[in-house]
């Protein structure tokens, strides 16, 4: 694409850096923004700047917050004995929207993957160990992605964190609810047979 203006081109390049946005979509955004009032644009730009200037990581769980401690960690209604380990804020929000979990979170910021240059020191594993030492949890729930890298991270943390009195669990892997068995992939279906449940325990109490 050949732009008549250097400034337009620069803006397109910036938008095209966003995930899932190519140069064509980026150009659409720029054309759209050009039609806006100055005040609207200024509010838009301002909110972008504030992202970095006025947010920070929660000192406990690494969630994104405007205060030192995020609203979940600060809430008196949360169960402080159970900690769930997730990769990032997207996974945390997904778990929150289930309304099935009332404990605290710890955001790792990634999973161990040497190919991508991510080792234990590049995620918040050290801080997690410290929290487990200090905060006296009774259960740790691993809710990481079910890939080889996610499993390895689970395994690494398990080896580092296991101690008497601390139950370490992982979220169940199995057939999706409302799904038909014939469409489930073999690995998932196979795993759900290996880790089958006592029927008694599946009844809602």
């Amino acid at each position: 694409m050949n732009f008549s203006s250097k400034i337009v081109e620069q803006a397109v390049d910036e938008f095209a850096k966003l995930p899932g946005v190519g140069r064509k979509t980026a150009f659409r955004f720029v054309v759209h923004l050009l039609k806006k009032d100055r005040s609207e644009l200024s509010a838009f730009a301002h909110s972008l700047l504030k992202l970095k200037e006025e947010t920070r990581e929660c000192k406990l769980c690494h969630n994104i917050t405007e205060t030192d401690i995020c609203s979940i960690c600060a809430s008196p209604r949360r169960d402080r004995k159970t900690l769930m380990v997730v990769e990032d804020i997207r996974d945390m929000l997904a778990i929150e929207s289930t309304e099935q979990f009332t404990g605290l979170y710890h955001l790792l910021g990634g999973v161990i993957s040497p190919i991508d240059g991510i080792g234990p020191s590049d995620i918040t594993a050290q801080h997690l160990m410290q929290r487990v030492q200090e905060e006296g949890f009774s259960e740790l729930i691993m809710a990481l992605r079910t890939t080889i890298e996610g499993d390895t991270t689970n395994f690494y943390l398990y080896k580092k964190l296991r101690r008497p009195g601390l139950k370490i669990t992982t979220i169940a892997r199995g057939v999706a609810i409302g799904g038909e068995l014939e469409y489930a992939d073999e690995i998932t279906l196979g795993r759900s047979i290996l880790h089958r449940l006592e029927y008694e325990n599946t009844l809602t109490k």
Partner: peptide, 9 residues
């Protein structure tokens, strides 16, 4: 510790 987790798996 890092290499160990890969070795075991």
């Amino acid at each position: 510790a890092s290499i160990e987790v890969w070795d075991m798996q």
